[in-house]
Amino acid sequence: MSQLEEIELICVTCPKGCKLDIIREGDTFVKITAGCKRGKEYARQELTDPRRMVATTVKVNNGLHPLVPVYTASAFPKPKIYELLSILRELQLDAPIHINQVVLADALGTGIDVIASRDLPASSAI
């Protein structure tokens, strides 16, 4: 029989930043006190499989700017963030880029795509 464990988190789901109180016994959540339903989900997720939205930039050839911003289409496993960043750092794209264009499909086998955050015209198009 494992012991009762009390955990405190700050929710990052929305800008309110609610305090979350969690009581856990081993892998079982005994009680989660949160500001809303999404907060409860976040607490459960954070303590079993923490994930974050990841946003960075990728190099672009011949674009209006030398970089295009990209992000993970959904929250990405936290322990793999640095590995993801190092892969994205090696990528090079050619302008024009379109918003939501897949830059890296199924990143690190997670099933999560990395997509472009904006249109980026070629430098000659301006």
Binding site: A55, P69, S117, D119
Partner: peptide, 24 residues
């Protein structure tokens, strides 16, 4: 355009977007 992080649009669009996507 330089706020490439997420967190935009939750209130108005019901989506969690980066700044450039929200602007577009």
């Amino acid at each position: 355009l330089q706020c490439i992080h997420n967190g935009f649009g939750m209130e108005n669009l019901g989506e969690d977007l980066p700044g450039p996507s929200y602007a577009q």
